[in-house]
Design a protein around this nucleic acid. Sequence first.
DNA 1: CGAAGCCTGCGGACAGTCCGAGCATGTCCG
DNA 2: CGGACATGCTCGGACTGTCCGCAGGCTTCG
Lengths: 343, 343
Amino acid sequence: MSAPAPTLRSLARQLGLSRTTVSDALRGSPRVDPKTAERVQRAAEEAGYRRNPLAGALMSELRRSRGTAFRGVLAAVDFTEPDRPDAAGRFHRELVIGAETRAGELGFKVEKFAVGHAGVSVQRLDSILQSRGIHGVILLPAWDDPDLSNLDWTRFAGIYTDYIIERPALHSVCSDHYRSLLAALQRIVALGYRQPGLYLQRHQDERLQFRWSAAFRAFQESQPEIRAIPPLIVAAHEQETFARWFKQHQPDVVLGHHTDAIDWMAACGAELPGRHGFVCLNKNMTARPCAGLDLQPRTLGARGAELLIAQLQRNETGIPEWPSTTTIPARWSDGPTLRLAAP
Amino acid sequence: MSAPAPTLRSLARQLGLSRTTVSDALRGSPRVDPKTAERVQRAAEEAGYRRNPLAGALMSELRRSRGTAFRGVLAAVDFTEPDRPDAAGRFHRELVIGAETRAGELGFKVEKFAVGHAGVSVQRLDSILQSRGIHGVILLPAWDDPDLSNLDWTRFAGIYTDYIIERPALHSVCSDHYRSLLAALQRIVALGYRQPGLYLQRHQDERLQFRWSAAFRAFQESQPEIRAIPPLIVAAHEQETFARWFKQHQPDVVLGHHTDAIDWMAACGAELPGRHGFVCLNKNMTARPCAGLDLQPRTLGARGAELLIAQLQRNETGIPEWPSTTTIPARWSDGPTLRLAAP
DNA sequence: CGAAGCCTGCGGACAGTCCGAGCATGTCCG
DNA sequence: CGGACATGCTCGGACTGTCCGCAGGCTTCG
């Protein structure tokens, strides 16, 4: 019943062979005599031997790297684009810091590469990565649809730090915008606000397949005590459009990316953080202090590195059959544009 | 430049201590002299020592289980509940099959456990898992909120196959309901339908934080050529309620879980799959052939096992600081309740 | 007949952990 | 004061599976 589980060594003893030969035989190495191999395999099956997966993973990694200092390098690839907002730079830097830190803990290094507009071509990147022996690629978020299908993905494992997962469809990590906005609204209501308004640039909502506005409407629908205000979704930010919407619908709190709206609200007679409030939907994209959501780029970068390294350790490259998206909720952060307790 | 990476042994040699003492010191064991411990920690930091997580995972497992060697076992835990719909059984079985298959490829086995109502208590589960040396737990979806915070999570790594990630908040894998519904609607519109209607049980939408209805409304909002029909969201399925809604709003295609609705539509004079259509939102929960979404329980189970094993290989147990949700899109599946091309 | 090459199998080294053993020092009590 | 016992600290052994180098025996061929 409780016989000790068979190991390579016990099996070898029983067969009168060395553990090495048994190991080689079970993995089908050409170094062992086919007759011996078959004998070993039969004995292993009879004894119910199962190789320890942890030991296997450790040893193959150990012997392969042969004492060299670092075990692997990941590439962080940035698409330089002419029309990307400058503020995105900070978000990117934080993502990379998170990835670097976590990768370091797991024995990997991260190196940055720029592609497109102000960087190298995709072809060139391919050959650089090949010659450097880099097999893990972290793709930083791009403003427009990037296209990396030209990379020879049979040799790489990759991960996006964004929702956009086409061309090619790889695994990705990103914020859980939907859930985070619901949580933020619950918080806001707990603070006594009753007429939340959403203010977005159309491109930003479309990029996320309308997750911001969908969560907002779902919340309005599920909370009868809230007065439903139609979201203001614009092509470009303009004070006049905003002011018209604000005066017509009179939201007592506005959620949005564009922090200039704080001034525009004030210009319309709003009192922040007393009767009115402003919540920023991505605090990492603005330098202005305010309450809002921290989309946690560091944590995202860290989890991305983790997922990528797990793939490399399983020796998996290429485009996954079913790409998955791993999301992390945003962290709420208080600030001077919102009251701290219900009045 | 490329000095060999410092190991426990090299560090010990350099300090004139044994590898054991160094290991104990770095892990804060009370067995070492605090002065020695500090000396070791400083030296380790200086040398840039980083412990190999794979070796750590292997060794702690190996030495802890003494004899009954680690053979990589995961527990699939099912919450037996009196009020869960029977159809859920099939979804669960598929999840487990997916997990078993993928785990097998990675050298792990899966064993099933039942908790609650018709199974063991959480306390009992804890001691069973401990004594069996199992450290990876896959939590199958529950109809109501399960509570597993009584498990001693410092010793386990766990993953949910569901959105619900409270008590405690672990990582999870589940379908991307939001994105899948958007994709399904796009497909339906391409087939020429113009008045899609959504039919849900309230509990099912609430469980997913309204993701079904939110995606539906977001699609209506973004597609002006669609006639917006208010979703029918009921406490319990009743033909009369459905018929009233159907006759009033006249959807030409209905999306829902409850396949009886197909008969109810026909009773209202609908022609399937000609002028009208029905799309099932979870084909794995019904035996009736129809068009709809395959939420891919096998793929979910496989990815869950993968994520869990990656944690075990990093020797990570306990409740993660930032729980993440990994989602996989549903697969579209044609069927006899929907036309195959635009008329 | 000797050198070269192949086939087959073996031993060493490697990672970090845990337990029991061992040694030195301190304490207590007869 | 000395033996018994306790405590604090350190060390060595054993454990997992893999990979490379090495060695002994055999065959081949000039």
